[in-house]
Design a protein around this nucleic acid. Structure first.
Length: 930
RNA sequence: GGUCGCGUAGCUCAGCUGGUUAGAGCGCUGGUCUCACAUACCAGAGGUCCGGGGUUCGAGUCCCUGCGCGACCACCA
């Protein structure tokens, strides 16, 4: 990039060639690097503004979901950076236990091996190497979409620093009694060969069958009970059948025994409230080792818990299975076993019924295998004590969730929180920092540092072989990336708590809620004040984009074709609060047209500006005497102020003013689509469509006025580029570099966010300026009216016509008269202002006869008679409403019972409307002549 | 089964505490190569605000109900 003043801009903007160079320039100038010492929290003069990235899996490749998520974060970060905050966006990756291990296992499988063939150490080494060579590619890809992350702070959940944070957290929870070893039924993935947390075992609606099986009552030939089950194969592990204690039908059976078909052993009939008498036959089989509920029942009744299905999901061969699993079923896959058992039952006449059954079955969130409930020993975190403060943080508005409706989901989950299974039978991850002494057999202990000898007896120790759930490192992310557990770390002091967390609702429980718990528990502060949950990128059929459906869009492909700006603009402008973004993978052209077209528009405004300014320097706006400004100048400056104000309102406030969000702040801000739309409307519909057009004649005439137009144009375009930079950083930076007066090393990326010009002056000055700005609206209205009539009467653009305008007031007449040249230029209609002219319909008649003459009647905008009618209708409508309002205010019941502020609001409304009526009455009188 | 949400133009959605003529983008129709831009410009068409009832001077907005759809949670075998 050169900063030399150039009057030429290529006719087409070449994003692919420009963007990488601009990005390199930002890096070179260290624009993205945050300086902790500048944070007001450590004595600096800037409020910190921090976002931690939702770390993508280290082996992931960029997809549209990332594109959306990171565009949002970058908009916020760039906005705050320009607004003067010390902005920090922490990037990084997640080691992603199961996901990464699965990838490497697949590689190993291609060599005909399993991870067990390699052995733990070799497998982990191989995974490390794999991550080293191919991992983190996604971070490079984020650069392509313009992410302004502070790469000097890139973090990784399995790095030595973050591993230390993980161990410290584990040890603290362990010593506080919040981590315990539990023996119970958990979700087990027979393919990944590991346990899963409740959140990792996802429900999927499935149509299965409900099998009714007869269990003969022992010692009472001919009598039987029928149980219903969706999983007949688990019957091999049955230890009882249960009925409800109050169920009359089976009362006499309680305490008796029934014969378990196929296995042929006797099991007791027990009474337990868990049984629902209304479901099926009211008798339920109890398989404690393979069903979480049955486990509870089994525990209550001190029943044995034989395991009949092994870790791989095959019918077991272990000691428990002996005598229960028939030899012909041993080692058979659970689903095959189901079919065989059903066949065996049918053969023996024990199958009473098979009915289709709709139910939700849990699947592994990583490989989609049907989860097998399995009795095992796992590490759990006691969640209730952690959940309570997390609930309070949201209830007390120290954290807000946007959009608000997710708050209920959050609260609901936390109120019904269940303990978190954090151990995984994997090899890739943080190994559980618990050691067992082989010699003295004392209690297991946790340690931050590796342990070689038993601290009690000095004997040899053995570390727990499990690893921790990936999310056990992710939940520390806002802390660990900033230096925790070192409480004195400057980043931690300067940037924690962070500000906004941007993510998708899918990981509200997995990640967001747990981060809040961790922040409050380990650092006594909530980790952020805003959770922004955005929608999902979907195709035109509203399907989630996915590899398997082949309906994905590769963001890098979009960047290559239309540029990162086009991608960013399209997703940000299309992102209503909490709504999904629909894109058509089959038609990228159309999907990204809004972004591409808008960027082209910006580019062309830049071309116009530069071709009219050339290498000459331009006076700063503040050196232009206010009296020299034209109506159009005043108008566009006024519109810029309005745009700035609206953008600020759509985006902010950036943080709560107090310790918690106030009621009035709560629902404001984070409307990125409103911000984008406001900026777009300003640039396109106001700056380009109107202001630029008005400057054309001024540019071709020499003299003072040309300089004024140039000064205003540069000022306004500069403001527009600043306003748009967070969304489309590349093209705005490129254009901004070319504006007159740029010094070497000056970058838009760290220029200041625009402020309203009006706010610099006093209130009186603001009011004074509103006049000329409003006057231009009359000119605009006149032009639109003339164009419409020309279009209605099909007058060819080349054909000049004469028009007469009758204005509603002398003031409007004066404005139109003065601006006649401009009106003529923009409508190709010579206009004349007359005091008396034929009224609208008459004018049209003349027009029909002779198109060389066009009579227009202007009253604000349109023909006087229609306008008169319109105003009359409006007045009568207003009067009707006013009457109703008066009625309400006169109503004793209303004024005494309603809240005082409501009554006050109604009174105010009445006053406003009355004033409005006065205005209308005046207008109608002037317009209609009565 | 529980909780929450949604149904407004052909499509995707805005419409705050009820109040003038219900908006935007895309798409569509007609007209223009006007010296920054046809990836553009100008003009326009298009809505019984899901159905029914109620509250109100006034309902897209509040209440009830019916229909349709979605999300999250959940141990009904």
């Amino acid at each position: 990039m050169s900063t030399e003043l150039s009057s030429e801009l290529s006719p087409q903007y070449d994003a692919a060639a420009t963007e990488p160079a601009i990005y390199a320039r930002w890096l070179e100038h260290g624009v993205f690097t945050a300086h902790a010492e500048r944070s007001a929290r450590v004595g600096g003069d800037r409020p910190p503004f921090t976002i931690v990235i939702p770390p993508p899996n280290v082996t992931a490749v960029l997809h549209m979901g990332h594109g959306l998520n990171n565009s949002v974060q970058d908009v916020l970060i760039r906005w705050r950076r320009m607004a003067g905050d010390e902005a920090l966006w922490v990037p990084g990756t997640d080691h992603a236990g199961i996901a990464t291990q699965n990838v490497v296992e697949r590689q190993v499988a291609e060599e005909g091996l399993t991870r067990f063939d390699l052995g733990r150490e070799a497998f982990v080494a191989r995974t490390e190497q794999f991550v080293e060579t191919t991992g983190g590619a996604i971070l490079k890809q984020l650069e392509a979409i313009g992410a302004s992350c502070d790469w000097s702070r890139t973090a990784y959940t399995l790095s030595p620093e973050l591993s230390r944070a993980v161990r410290t957290a584990f040890v603290r929870l362990f010593e506080d009694g919040l981590i315990y070893r539990g023996h119970r039924v958990i979700h087990w993935c027979p393919r990944c060969l590991t346990s899963l947390s409740d959140e990792e075992a996802e429900f999927e609606e499935t149509t299965g069958a409900l099998y009714h099986i007869a269990y003969p009552v022992a010692g009472e030939p001919g009598r039987e009970v029928v149980v219903a089950t969706t999983r007949p194969e688990t019957m091999l592990g049955d230890v009882a059948v249960a009925v409800h204690p109050a169920d009359e039908r089976y009362r006499d059976l309680v305490g008796r025994r029934v014969v378990l078909p196929i296995v042929g052993i006797e099991i007791p009939v027990i009474a337990d409230e868990y049984t629902d008498p209304a479901f099926g036959t009211g008798v339920v089989k109890i398989t404690p080792a393979h069903d979480a509920n049955d486990f509870e029942v089994g525990a209550r009744h001190a029943l044995p818990m034989p395991v009949v299905i092994d870790a791989r999901g095959d019918m077991g061969e272990g000691p428990d299975a002996a005598g229960r699993v028939p030899p012909e079923l041993a080692g058979v896959d659970r689903f095959t076993a189901r079919d065989r058992i059903v066949a065996m039952l049918r053969e023996r006449g024990a199958l009473r019924d098979v009915a289709p059954h709709q139910h939700a079955v849990r699947h592994c969130y990583r490989c989609d295998t049907v989860v097998e409930p399995r009795l095992s020993d796992q590490w759990f975190v006691k969640m209730a004590p952690l959940a309570r403060p997390a609930l309070e943080a949201v209830r007390e508005r120290r954290i807000r969730i946007v959009p608000e409706r997710w708050e209920a989901v959050y609260v609901n989950w936390l109120e019904n929180i269940r303990d978190w299974n954090i151990s995984r039978q994997l090899w890739w991850g943080h190994r559980v920092p618990v050691w067992y002494c082989e010699a003295c057999g004392g209690a297991a202990f946790a340690s931050v540092d590796d342990v070689d000898d038993c601290p009690r007896c000095g004997g040899p120790v053995r570390q727990d072989s499990d690893v921790l759930d990936t999310w056990f490192s992710s939940w520390l992310w806002p802390l660990s990336t900033l230096g925790w557990p070192d409480e004195r770390a400057i980043d931690l002091r300067a940037f924690y708590p962070t500000d906004v967390l941007v993510t998708a609702p899918e990981i509200l429980f997995f990640w967001v809620a747990r981060m809040i718990m961790a922040g409050l528990y380990f650092a006594r502060r909530e980790p952020f004040h805003t959770v922004y949950l955005h929608g999902t990128v979907r195709d035109m059929q509203h399907r989630k984009m996915s590899k398997s459906l082949g309906n994905g869009i590769d963001p890098l492909d979009v960047v290559a074709r239309y540029g990162a700006d086009a991608l960013r603009w399209t997703v940000i402008a299309g992102l209503g609060l909490g709504t999904d973004v629909m894109l058509d993978p089959a038609n990228l052209e159309q999907s990204f047209a809004p972004g591409r077209n808008f960027i082209t528009k910006l580019w062309n405004i830049g071309r116009y500006l530069l071709s009219n300014i050339g290498a000459e320097s331009v006076r700063p706006l503040r050196d232009i005497p206010p009296a020299a400004l034209t109506r159009a100048d005043e108008w566009i400056l006024h519109r810029l102020d309005a745009a700035i104000e609206e953008c600020d309102a759509a985006l902010g406030p950036a943080r709560p003013t107090g310790a918690a969000w106030s009621e009035s702040e709560l629902r404001r801000g984070m409307r990125l689509d409103d911000y984008a739309e406001t900026a777009r409307r300003f640039v396109w519909n106001e700056l380009a469509d109107w202001y630029v057009e008005t400057t054309k004649p001024r540019m071709s005439a020499d003299g003072e006025d040309r300089d004024v137009a140039r000064a205003v144009l540069v000022h306004v375009f500069d403001g527009a580029l600043r306003l748009l930079h967070p969304i489309v950083p590349f093209v705005t930076e490129t254009l901004w570099q070319r504006l007159p007066g740029r010094a070497e090393g000056e970058l838009l990326a760290r220029a200041s966010w625009p402020v309203r010009r009006a706010s610099e002056g006093g209130a009186a000055e603001r009011g004074e300026r509103a006049g000329p700005a409003e006057a231009f609206e009359h000119v605009r209205d006149a032009i639109v009216a003339i164009r419409r009539i020309r279009s209605e009467y099909n007058i060819a653009p080349g054909q000049r016509v004469e028009g007469a305008i009758r204005a509603s007031t002398p003031r409007v007449a004066a404005i139109v008269r003065e601006e006649a040249p401009l009106i003529e230029r923009l409508t190709r209609t010579a206009v004349e202002v007359v005091d008396r002219s034929p009224a609208g319909p008459v004018a049209h008649e003349i027009l029909e006869r002779d198109r060389s003459e066009l009579y227009l009647v202007l009253a604000g905008a349109v023909d006087v008679e229609r306008e008169c009618e319109r105003q009359r209708r409006e007045l009568s409508e207003l009067e009707r409403q006013l009457e109703g309002l008066a009625k309400r205010l006169a109503n004793e019941q209303f004024t005494s019972r309603a809240k005082p502020e409501v009554v006050e609001a109604e009174r105010r409304k009445h006053r406003d409307w009355s004033a409005r009526r006065e205005q209308l009455v005046q207008k109608v009188r002037a317009l209609c002549g009565d």
